[in-house]
Design a protein around this nucleic acid. Structure first.
Lengths: 189, 189
DNA sequence: AAACATAACTAACAAACGTTAGTTTAAATA
DNA sequence: TATTTAAACTAACGTTTGTTAGTTATGTTT
């Protein structure tokens, strides 16, 4: 996530501040100050505070959608699908941990894009659930409650943004495979 | 979490709204409206908005501290300790899922009580880590990275507040034991 | 009946909010 | 050199924010 345009710089700066205090607690003056300019100057590059938020969230949500589509279209078994989902979360979160905080905590402040976001999320979860159900059906996974497995795995993956920036000792090359072991060993048959 | 005093009613109402939109996005007028009164009337019962937040969060944080102390003082093996921690989270979250949202997402808006909260949280995580380390040392748990196990389990437990209110199909009597299986089977030797 | 307590109210405050309008500066292009 | 463009600026706007002060209504206790 390197800034290419001035608009990108604003979005990246905002995402960093949104992670620390949440969307509602960050003012346009906060964002401007972090960039060394005045709040009004931001409006040469963006149309509204809301636009910053939806840019952060929708970009990420679409990355997940795209990644999931590739996984669903592959002909792997369920366990490899799950490992690829872990990889997907680790990769996206490593590239943009700040943005992931907004995705997790500030999606309800989306206005125009709220409905679209909720649809993307619903579809993502449904695909995830489908992979788990198929794994149970094919006897690759233990037959625990599907929603409980989904909840457990997804909760951990969604919390990655909190831990990844703080832990260089968990080097990211191995993080995904180590995480897969801890997360999936309990449900693999 | 039944309201006993008018102050309790305010805190419970506020917690519900805080869960939906976050502390910063909820106004005193929002809270008042939800109770059918005017914002100024709230100040007959509480001293500030901040007081509402710290009441919600510190009460819960101290419940966790108390529960952890009991677990640490028992002479159980590590696996039973972990199961008891799962129970503790399920119990507290079931009783006050709204408040748990504030604990997870709005702790950074604590002012006077921030330092105290961070200390409670640090101690809790250290105790949790200690239990895992002892389990590995005693050959009860697989020797994966301690912090990775801690992160994985704690992420799921901290996200319970999102799922518990929506899922009556996961009946709470069995939730804790089912969750223990999914969460812990992967790390138990 | 008088005094008190509880819990609401109206009205207003200063500060902070997102945003707009119009202007200036400096660098790139013609 | 003249023109254009990018990106900053100052000043202000109407609104919303948390909060305070003083008042009123309704029961409860003396």
């Amino acid at each position: 996530m390197k800034p290419e345009t001035r608009k990108d710089e604003i979005i990246i700066t905002a995402a960093r501040l949104f992670k620390e205090k949440g969307y509602s607690a960050v003012t346009m003056r906060d964002i401007a100050k972090a960039m060394g300019i005045k709040a009004a100057s931001l409006y040469n590059h963006i149309n509204s505070k809301q636009e910053i938020l939806s840019n952060i969230i929708i970009t990420l949500a679409e990355e997940f959608t795209k990644g999931m589509k590739i996984i669903m279209n592959s002909n792997n078994n369920s366990i490899d699908d799950l490992k690829n989902i872990v990889d997907l979360h680790v990769k996206i979160t490593t590239n943009n941990a700040f943005g992931m905080a907004s995705l997790n905590n500030d999606w309800m402040h989306l206005e125009d894009k709220l409905e679209y976001y909720l649809e993307l999320r619903k579809n993502y979860e449904n695909n995830f659930r489908q992979i788990i159900e198929l794994g149970i059906k094919n006897n690759e996974l233990v037959s625990a409650d599907t929603n409980l497995i989904l909840f457990s795995v997804l909760s951990t993956l969604r919390s990655l943004y909190i831990w990844i920036p703080n832990k260089e000792d968990l080097q990211n090359t191995n993080l995904a495979s180590n995480l897969s072991k801890v997360l999936l060993n309990g449900i693999i048959k």
